[in-house]
Design a protein around this nucleic acid. Structure first.
Lengths: 404, 404
DNA sequence: CTGAAAGCGCTAACAG
DNA sequence: CTGTTAGCGCTTTCAG
């Protein structure tokens, strides 16, 4: 006869089920049961085990558990690299706002996950380290969400055959994946239509994001839709492009101001991408929301439509610095609905994205699929909402009464 | 002789080392090596393995790995429950800003962790579900950080004997734990001193947070330090307390306004905690930054010092709504350095916390300790910085030039 | 440089 | 209700 098969860990090392079992004079199976299905163990026995565990400082090993049960109770999230680590609080907290979006998704997922009994594993790609995020995450989770452009499609292709994966806020690169998006195009179309129909603006300039940003491109498309619907010229390219930062918004505004000052030449000509945008209807500027005063607005479009709030806030700042009044001289709009927009001067008209809901939907989709791996891929498109504030010429609505 | 000991997984199930090994005609040990120490395997062999893995869609199991190697490559973070999930974007995005603090810590940890080869497991306590966070997290990580008051001290006590734990932004409840804090007291002292010495203010009112918020309490202590240093009355309790939200800030401002309007009675008397605060030096109000105009300031303190930015922004809003001018009638300050503060009207003077660095330090501490479990506990205190803007009477400094 | 063997700590049928 | 017995998939000496 052999000696004990699984000798208790003795002195060193973290305590295991064996240690607890020995101390409580029960089998390891019972110890396991106490944690997995407490009701399947008689109360006295359970107490004994719990007491032993407490004394020993026992904490079940997630790894062993995961290995044995083939599920980890963890959901993953891959996000793109954001912000330079060295740039902490350079002065105005600009980069803080930049992250809000991903933060909200994280938060939404975290809560939704936890309320369903999952924890959240977050991994961001590192600009300089192309190590596969998927490999890091996939091995530890029961399923995960990926923000668009974070990981290579080929990799997703492979791993998505083995576990639930949902694509976030990006075009369904892999059509067989679940994915949740926001209705960027629709939102921008409605916003633009509002400018055209409610405020009677006709000379619009759109400031886009990088050409490879699906969100920004979808917004541009929405902008074009509105132009088309209104019988306005439909630009093939944004009048300007920026990298979605506040600074880019400032720059865009300055380009416009400079162009306006140097005569009525194609003011969009200074753009990075192709030029020739917004039709030249200089006279239309006088048709703006609330004309009056002298005319620092001469040569400016009726409205500047930026692809996100950050750029819009930057533009607001630049205009203010140059004595251009918003919305009197030019209307300005953003997209996203970040808190900063509400505090801007004037408060920014924008389109609010349900960023937190994106995370929540992702979890719902993931959990669904974990329950039914063969289910058809779902694509959920979250609606956005117009937030009309002063920067487009709308009167700031009275603050809503607190809800009961 | 027996049959194959570890038959390849065959058709079903996710592929394992055995499948890859078989397909590449090598042993499982070699497959393992390819992932753990690629250089220990001849290039041709390595390629063969990698190819097989690719074909199979093989992803190493984090659980199995963790079990076998006793390390998971994951760092954990326990944060307190925040925001009601139902309250998404009720109107002003208030709750968005509310989370910034935890978000920054998450972000800081996430990046720091990843740059050192770790992923981040985030778990928030659920208001209604007291299930042990620690149990969820501890089993899956190599060490973790805990935001103060998130988990019971007893539990930490136990688990910290078995793995690295660092306490965040809270008083070292367990003195043997590593912990990282922010110099709340010092920051508030300096800010207050600035108000007293640079602006000549003497009648100060401090709005604190919940009594069980270590951060808010430390700030109050700093405020008291400054009062004492200046020979001013040293209140035993904050003039008012709030729950650190924007709404609480609004309420605080209103209490002050009402009290001022209803005569010069003890305006702090309406506070929740004990009353009797800031010495009565009503005349001093005229000594404010830029006196002039009529006197809506009558009965108001010279300055309202709020325990955080959110409350301060709320106060700013309320004052504006009642025609009280800041800083002419009353100076207002916050604490934290959230982006909202910079956009407020007037821009908010505050103390900036290096929130992201907290997360970074936490990771550094954790990784250090993982490397040296027996090391002495470290306590790092991060410095804060004064951000002087218009709400205290300082001129808004010109925007710093972009760094080269 | 590669293979064989022995677990890591826990769960999950099965027996009793 | 509780104990036995196999592994889960991978890392790791230790040989070769």
């Amino acid at each position: 006869m052999v000696t004990a098969r699984k000798p208790a860990t003795g002195t060193t090392g973290t305590p295991t089920v064996y240690d607890v079992a020995e101390r409580a004079s029960v089998s390891i199976a019972t110890v396991s049961r106490v944690y997995r299905s407490p009701d399947a163990v008689r109360a006295p026995t359970r107490e004994k085990v719990l007491a032993a565990a407490r004394d020993l400082g026992y904490v079940p090993s997630g790894s062993a558990r995961g290995l044995a049960s083939r599920t980890t109770g963890i959901l993953g999230l891959c996000i793109p690299d954001y912000a330079d680590p060295e740039t902490d609080a350079p002065g105005d907290g600009d980069e803080n706002a930049a992250t809000l979006y991903a933060d909200h998704i994280i938060r939404g997922m975290e809560r939704a996950a936890r309320s369903r009994g999952f924890a959240l594993l977050v991994a961001a790609s590192l600009r300089d380290d192309p190590t596969s995020l998927v490999a890091t995450v996939a091995g530890h989770v029961d399923g995960f969400a990926v923000m668009s452009r974070t990981v290579a499609a080929r990799e997703l292709e492979t791993v998505s055959r083995r576990m639930p994966v949902v694509m976030l806020a990006g075009p369904p690169e892999l059509d067989h994946l679940d994915n949740v998006q926001v209705d960027n195009r629709d939102g921008q179309r409605e916003l633009t239509r509002h400018l055209i129909e409610e405020h009677g603006l006709a000379d619009l300039a759109f400031v886009g994001g990088p050409a490879d940003s699906p969100d920004a491109e979808a917004r541009f498309l929405g902008y074009r839709d509105a132009c088309r619907d209104a019988g306005l010229p439909v630009p093939a390219e944004p009048a300007l492009r920026g990298d979605l930062t506040r600074t880019a918004g400032r720059d865009a505004a300055r380009v416009l101001i400079d162009a306006a000052a140097s005569g009525a030449v194609s003011r969009a000509g200074a753009a990075s991408g192709s030029a020739a945008a917004s039709g030249a209807v200089p006279g239309a500027a006088s048709g703006a929301a609330s004309g009056g005063g002298p005319d620092p607005a001469a040569g400016l479009p009726d409205a500047l439509i930026l692809a996100n709030d950050q750029m819009a806030v930057g533009a607001l700042e630049e205009f203010a610095a140059h004595g251009v009044r918003v919305p009197e001289h030019i209307a300005v709009t953003g997209f996203d609905g970040i808190p900063l927009g509400a505090m801007a001067q004037p408060p920014l008209t924008t389109v609010r994205q349900p960023s937190r809901r994106i995370g929540e939907e992702a979890v719902a989709l993931l959990v669904d699929r974990i329950g039914a791996p063969a289910r058809e891929p779902h694509a959920v498109v979250l609606p956005v909402t117009l937030v009309l504030r002063a920067s487009c010429g709308c009167v700031e609505p009275v603050p809503a009464p607190r809800r009961g």
